[in-house]
């Protein structure tokens, strides 16, 4: 049984639907990457899963139940985590406090999880007393990911984690994502650096106009001449 399965999801912000039947299935071991042109509904898909917009049709199965239209404070304890694209850290709070906020829904002792995050991002341990707003773009992205991992999710969703980062940091972030995945966290992400991301994706989804256009492994999609021509810029 897949970790998460979207079946023919329809939804939007109230007006005309933006998603017109999206199908996505991810296993716990997968790194799923959603690519597609602007306005295809990539970020919208993630937001729909996370209950940030209204789902009017289809089902979203996660952990054996339909979670469509559940709100984040119910989803996070179930093992779902989301890193938004922008404004994804609490700028006025210290790095450590940012991480604590990720563990808000947990009532158990989360110090081992924090240790785990610091091991994954050693630079954050050094800067744990600094306000997150004073960090560089790449470090902020680490804080954002760290915050999302603090709830011990089984599925981590990332909205364009490489946006606005320098090429060196893009590689580092992608490596970190793969490392997180190896630790047993399923990944579903939206990426503009499509070719780079599909290269390590075990599942790829090409969306256009709120619908699936192509689905396959990352390698398959890169190899597909039509995908390459229309969506990966030749």
């Amino acid at each position: 049984m897949p970790l998460i399965e979207l079946k023919h999801v329809v939804g939007g912000y109230g007006g005309a639907p933006i998603l017109n039947g999206v199908n996505i299935a991810i296993e716990k071991t997968d790194i799923g990457v959603i690519v597609g042109p602007n306005g295809a509904g990539k970020s919208t898909t993630l937001k729909a899963i996370f209950g940030l917009l209204k789902v009017t049709g289809g089902t979203i199965d996660f952990g054996g139940e339909n979670i469509a239209n559940s709100l984040p404070d119910k989803l996070v304890p179930k093992g779902l985590s989301f890193v938004p694209q922008e404004k994804n850290v609490f700028t006025s709070m210290s790095v450590e406090e940012n991480l604590e906020m990720g563990a808000f829904t947990r009532t158990d002792d989360f110090s081992s999880t924090m240790e785990w995050v610091y091991e994954m991002f050693p630079v954050l341990r050094e800067k744990r007393r600094q306000p997150a707003g004073e960090l560089s773009g790449g470090q902020r992205q680490m804080v954002a990911m760290g915050r999302a991992l603090m709830s011990k999710p089984t599925l981590l969703m990332l909205d364009e984690p490489s946006a606005g980062l320098s090429p060196r940091y893009v590689i580092e972030i992608f490596e970190t994502i793969q490392r997180v995945n190896k630790e047993g966290v399923g990944i579903l992400m939206v990426e503009q650096n499509a070719r780079q991301a599909l290269a390590f994706a075990s599942k790829g989804f090409v969306l256009a106009s709120g619908q699936n256009r192509f689905t396959g492994t990352g390698a398959e999609l890169i190899a597909d001449p039509e995908v390459a021509k229309s969506f990966l810029g030749g």
């Binding site: 996370f50 984040p72 996070v76 989301f82 938004p84 609490f90 808000f104 829904t105 999302a148």
Partner: peptide, 10 residues
């Protein structure tokens, strides 16, 4: 600080 992110954090 950031109401949207607070919601997303659960």
């Amino acid at each position: 600080d950031n109401a949207d992110l607070a919601q997303v954090s659960g």
